[in-house]
């Protein structure tokens, strides 16, 4: 189990460049706790603070990578979690194809950007994203059974899904907000780091 100071740095490593609130939202830590630890990291040169955003420095990246195998040894040895991760990878492939269909559409055999002019097409994909979410939920529950803080992702994903269902289509895949795809990718990064896996492509 990772202790709070390292967990705050881990959250920042996933966010890359983010505020204490953003790091708190994905690590299930209290924002005040994150602020305290990231400010301390900034004082010792492990993080850089500009405005209200932090960025991890290279030394901290290296230190963090060596911390994973120690702090998450239980999770890495947990066969249920590793098996759940394999199932996650399968849903991950489906998610990537679905996001590709969201972003591109095939017109007469030719692929081109989806300009979101066809609401029925978009609605259908958001509907399928909801189906995918329902299939992913049990897998996420199995992962959270091994490491409870991971359950925050389910809520972040659901929030993004519901905003998309309500018509805010940026919440499907926009890289600049905590869209479904953003949350999914950050979650994937979290899982890879915790379980010592490799990204497939």
């Amino acid at each position: 189990m990772m202790k709070d100071p390292q967990l705050a740095l881990h959250g920042l490593a996933i966010k890359k460049h983010g505020t204490a609130e953003e790091v708190a939202a994905i690590t299930a830590l209290d924002p005040a706790v994150v602020t305290k630890h990231l400010d301390a990291a900034a004082e010792t040169g492990r993080a850089l603070k500009t405005g209200d955003k932090y960025m991890l420095q290279p030394t901290a990246q290296i230190a963090l990578k060596s911390a994973y195998s120690r702090d998450y040894s239980d999770e890495r040895a947990n066969a249920d979690m590793q098996a759940a991760y394999d199932d996650f990878e399968r849903v991950n492939e489906q998610l990537k194809s679905l996001i590709t269909e969201w972003q591109t559409m095939t017109v007469g055999g030719k692929s081109m950007p989806n300009d979101h002019s066809d609401k029925a097409y978009d609605d259908k994909i958001i509907d399928r994203l909801g189906d995918l979410h329902e299939r992913a939920e049990p897998v996420l529950d199995r992962l959270a059974a091994g490491l409870p803080r991971l359950s925050v992702w389910k809520q972040l994903l659901l929030t993004a899904l519901e905003r998309a269902e309500d018509g805010e289509i940026d919440w499907v895949s926009d890289a600049r907000c905590m869209s479904y795809h953003t949350a999914w990718f950050e979650m994937h990064e979290d899982l890879i780091r915790v379980l010592g896996r490799e990204r497939l492509e």
Partner: peptide, 24 residues
């Protein structure tokens, strides 16, 4: 986000680079 374009060695039209570039 900063780049005028993105080029990768590996991956297809559903890779991270492709998906994020289209979103951006």
């Amino acid at each position: 986000i900063a780049a005028m374009a993105v080029v990768t060695e590996r991956g297809g039209s559903t890779s991270h680079a492709a998906v994020v570039s289209r979103a951006l």
